[in-house]
């Protein structure tokens, strides 16, 4: 029996539900309603409304990716320094929130951030001025960091755990202090995990419409919101597909980054 035949169902499934659908997006993206070829859908990214949405999306996802990295790296380092046995349970504790419905968790942030919500309640009992938190770009960034932080922690943690303790010991032995060990040994060796984490946070943050909807109110439009509305409310699928193609350029860039820096798939999250 030829084992390769076992991939038959998988290949048919992937062609039917991954390749053809993506081809359809390209097809819709470069045609108009009547079916004739046009680049108008793609070019419409340069209109003020769309360009502004894309720019804001890039900005917010960039900031939240950076924040995730800043928060996750020390966390992964601490988890590594605590060893595997204890580490594995703590790691579970850190990914446990992912089991909760992500819409509900984000909605709970609404409750915390609202004008007369929990945080402002605490501030007023401390006789501090209340803050305008909800429906701001800051609230969206918080939602992104909150939802995607585990996707940054896990790949970095996994890569750090694979580094032999004796490699760190050897660097110490050769005279490196803790900071030099971090800069010269741990950081370069954890690049695959960092790159994988960055793409795993950046892509969903760039394309989200849910977080902006729940925490940003109706006034802040991200590119994800624009595309979603074209499909559900505006029903201009051609325009939505064209804008998706623009988004896919950024996704392709991050896939290329992974291919370059994580050749052996060391930086996987799962």
């Amino acid at each position: 029996m030829n084992k390769k035949l076992l991939s038959g169902p998988y290949l048919m499934w992937m062609i039917g539900f991954i390749i053809i659908p993506l081809a359809l997006i390209v097809l819709y993206g470069v045609t108009d309603r009547s079916g004739s070829f046009t680049l108008a859908n793609i070019i419409s990214i340069t209109t003020e409304e769309h360009a502004k949405a894309l720019w804001l999306s890039l900005l917010l996802s960039f900031v939240s990716t950076a924040l995730c990295l800043i928060l996750a790296y020390p966390l992964a380092m601490i988890l590594r320094s605590r060893g595997i046995g204890q580490g594995s349970f703590i790691v579970f504790i850190f990914i446990l929130p992912m089991w909760m419905n992500f819409l509900l968790r984000t909605l709970a942030w609404q409750t915390l951030l609202e004008r007369n919500g929990v945080i402002n309640g605490v501030l007023s009992t401390l006789r501090l001025p209340s803050l305008n938190l909800i429906n701001t770009p800051g609230a969206i960034i918080l939602g992104m960091v909150y939802n995607f932080l585990p996707f940054m922690v896990l790949p970095i943690y996994n890569v750090l755990m694979k580094i032999d303790d004796n490699v760190v010991n050897a660097a110490r032995d050769l005279g490196a202090n803790s900071f030099q060990v971090l800069i010269r040994i741990l950081l370069p060796l954890s690049i695959p995990g960092v790159v994988s984490g960055i793409t795993m946070v950046f892509v969903p943050a760039l394309t989200t419409f849910v977080i902006s909807n729940l925490l940003g109110g109706s006034k802040i439009l991200l590119i994800g919101n624009v595309i979603e509305q074209e499909f559900t409310k505006g029903s201009n699928w051609n325009l939505g597909s064209g804008l998706s193609l623009v988004l896919m350029v950024f996704i392709l860039i991050s896939m290329a980054l992974i291919a370059k820096y994580d050749k052996n798939g060391e930086g996987t999250a799962f």
């Binding site: 390749i19 359809l24 394309t207 896939m255």
Partner: peptide, 24 residues
């Protein structure tokens, strides 16, 4: 090649996967 195809839905944005499936 097959592992590349496998990676597409994981790395692609959910919104693009969702829309493309709906169109299909």
């Amino acid at each position: 090649i097959l592992m590349g195809i496998t990676n597409i839905p994981m790395l692609n944005a959910d919104i693009v996967t969702g829309i493309s499936l709906m169109l299909a």
